[in-house]
């Protein structure tokens, strides 16, 4: 009888149960997100210049250049990855050919590589002894080396971005109703119009979501940049330099916070765009 009452008693307080259930999540959030973030923000303001360190982006040209380079690179990589993955993803969903399953599973291969390996692959391709250089020397007499430039970073970032985007695109393209395209064709729509009016609007939520992940990953990528960036500064590299070589811990922390904020703002912008779209399937 007391047991029954106990049960009854608890069931009258759903808020309490919810609170108990939310406790682990709350602890994790507090310990691994909120506390380190607050600490990072505080450290960022603890240097000689104090909170003014957060304005270093404006006062130190090197930092501003590094930020602009990182944003432009990430944006370029994201847009290119979206374009390539959309064409390839829709093709892979629409066509059945021998070896298709093997190809699709191979596409996810680069997901397992750390950035260093990807940097190494870019050097093998476009480094001083690279394939591109040798072919170019054979054809034109000039050795083409771009592994250690922005172009090299671009190729490396693109390489690890495409698998992330293409899987999302393929999932969205599977759900496309072929009748929609047939209806558009019966109304006289040319192929480019069907892409613009039917296929892209249907893929849009998936493209925005995977584009956002691709952008954030590129903004924070370090391993590839560390392997390749001898002449160029992307923001994660600048943070590393400030932290290890200059022992400017406050500067590194403030740059980290700004990197996080810029990326977060870009993702929020993307999310507000996708909020206005209607998921187009069935």
């Amino acid at each position: 009888m007391p047991l029954l009452q106990d049960r009854k008693g608890v069931s009258h307080h759903p808020a309490l149960i919810l609170g108990l259930l939310a406790l682990p999540a709350g602890i994790v959030f507090l310990a691994f997100f909120l506390l380190p973030m607050v600490r990072l923000v505080l450290i960022g303001a603890s240097g000689e210049e104090g909170a003014a360190a957060y304005l270093s982006m404006l006062t130190t040209p090197r930092h501003l250049e590094s930020m602009i380079a990182t944003v432009l690179l990430s944006l370029g990589v994201t847009l290119t990855a979206l374009a390539i993955s959309t064409v390839a993803g829709v093709f892979l969903v629409r066509h059945r050919f021998p070896g298709r399953a093997a190809l699709v599973s191979l596409l996810t291969f680069p997901l397992a590589f750390p950035g260093v390996v990807i940097g190494f692959l870019v050097i093998l391709l476009a480094g001083r002894q690279g394939l591109v250089g040798q072919v170019a020397q054979f054809l034109t007499g000039n050795k083409l080396v771009f592994a250690y430039s922005m172009a090299g970073l671009f190729v490396g970032y693109l390489y690890f971005s495409i698998p992330r985007v293409i899987l999302t695109v393929m999932a969205a393209a599977e759900k496309l109703d072929p009748r929609l395209e047939e209806a558009a064709r019966s109304l006289g729509a040319a192929p480019w119009r069907i892409v613009a009016d039917i296929i892209l609007p249907a893929l849009k939520p998936g493209l925005i979501a995977s584009g956002a992940i691709c952008f954030a990953t590129s903004m924070g990528a370090f391993g590839t940049a560390f392997t390749l960036a001898t002449n160029i500064d992307v923001l994660p590299m600048t943070i590393y330099t400030e932290f290890t070589l200059s022992a400017n811990i406050a500067g590194a922390a403030s740059l980290s916070v700004i990197l996080g904020l810029v990326t977060w703002a870009a993702l929020a912008l993307a999310r507000s765009f996708s909020g206005s779209t209607v998921a187009a399937s069935g």
Binding site: D177, R179, L180, E182, A183, A184, D197, I198, P201, A202, T277, V278, A279, A280, S281, G282
Partner: peptide, 10 residues
Amino acid sequence: VFQSYALFPN
């Protein structure tokens, strides 16, 4: 006209 209507959802 299709059984599934095939109206453009966007």
